[in-house]
Design a protein around this nucleic acid. Structure first.
Lengths: 160, 160
DNA sequence: CGCCAAACTATGCAACTGCATAGAACAAGG
DNA sequence: CCTTGTTCTATGCAGTTGCATAGTTTGGCG
């Protein structure tokens, strides 16, 4: 029941779910996130925490709105999430001296070490997911993802 | 700075975000969903509604927990979402005569026509995303997604 | 037939979410 | 220097979420 009909929406837009790329991607990503979330719960963390920690590790010293963009978390939500993470000593927020409107966020040593601690959980999840895929195929997958990101407005010039 | 290092987590698990497949997938899916969500808001719908409608269209007459599995929505959340959708006349819930524990859910005509009405929005979003990808490549992408789903426990035999 | 474990849905409660917006800081032009 | 428009973060409020669990129905076994 999984015919190849991915682009045949022209006249008959009745989607067989298993043949729709967005559905497949959604299901897969949701599952991946949920699995990781379950693993993180023991440390009182959520998947959103993970994303913030990961982004901050890569882009140390970000601002709230840049971080929101990178972590794909609504700004208002992130603002309060960061407040909570600050209370737990995972991040430090400080006013920028260049521009007092900006709030610079960075990991504390505690936040960094916590990140190091949980990276293996994410890696484990990731490796389980890509079993059977060759590195070359993964490269190709990532290229396709980047291509689609550009198509949808994540390439640098934000749309509406 | 985007070297091909997707699987080089062996000794140095320091992920450059843009080189991590899960991160790319998350960003892309989040953006897709958010875009669709924005389009749906005018009709007082959310992306979750969309998923429920889509799954119900494909698998008419489902139960709450099966639907939760297919739509990747926690059962408790779905239960209340369905209650609201029921009040709006989009779905109908009825006790199964085979097993009184089960609640069978199906679309009402109103729900079905609403779905038909919003399908184009999703298709539009989808087509924009895959611009530049050949049908053959999309097929390949979906195959990879299914492979990864199986790896993560969505193939039929649920893990934990 | 009665009892215990399992399956399924709904709900209490505390927490989180996001939209809209207030509040504060900057930038540009008169 | 003041005014006006823009950029950025935080918050009020109403709604939603999810964990844990209660309540109900089944199935299996003695």
């Amino acid at each position: 029941m999984s015919v190849s009909r991915a682009l045949a929406h022209d006249v008959e837009p009745l989607p067989l779910l298993d043949d729709l790329l967005p559905y497949l991607m959604n299901r897969l990503v949701s599952r991946l996130n949920r699995n990781l979330d379950a693993k993180l719960r023991r440390r009182r963390l959520t998947f959103e925490h993970w994303r913030v920690l990961a982004v901050l590790t890569a882009h140390d010293r970000s601002t709230v709105s840049v971080l929101a963009e990178l972590a794909v978390i609504p700004q208002a939500t992130l603002s309060r999430l960061l407040a909570r993470m600050g209370e737990r000593g995972l991040v430090r927020r400080s006013m920028s001296r260049r521009d007092s409107r900006l709030v610079e966020v960075r990991l504390t040593p505690k936040g960094r070490s916590l990140y190091e601690e949980i990276v293996p959980l994410a890696v484990e999840e990731y490796r389980a997911a890509v079993v059977g895929l060759r590195p070359q195929e993964i490269e190709w997958l990532m290229a396709a993802m980047r291509r689609m990101q550009d198509n949808v407005g994540l390439g640098g010039s934000g749309p509406s």
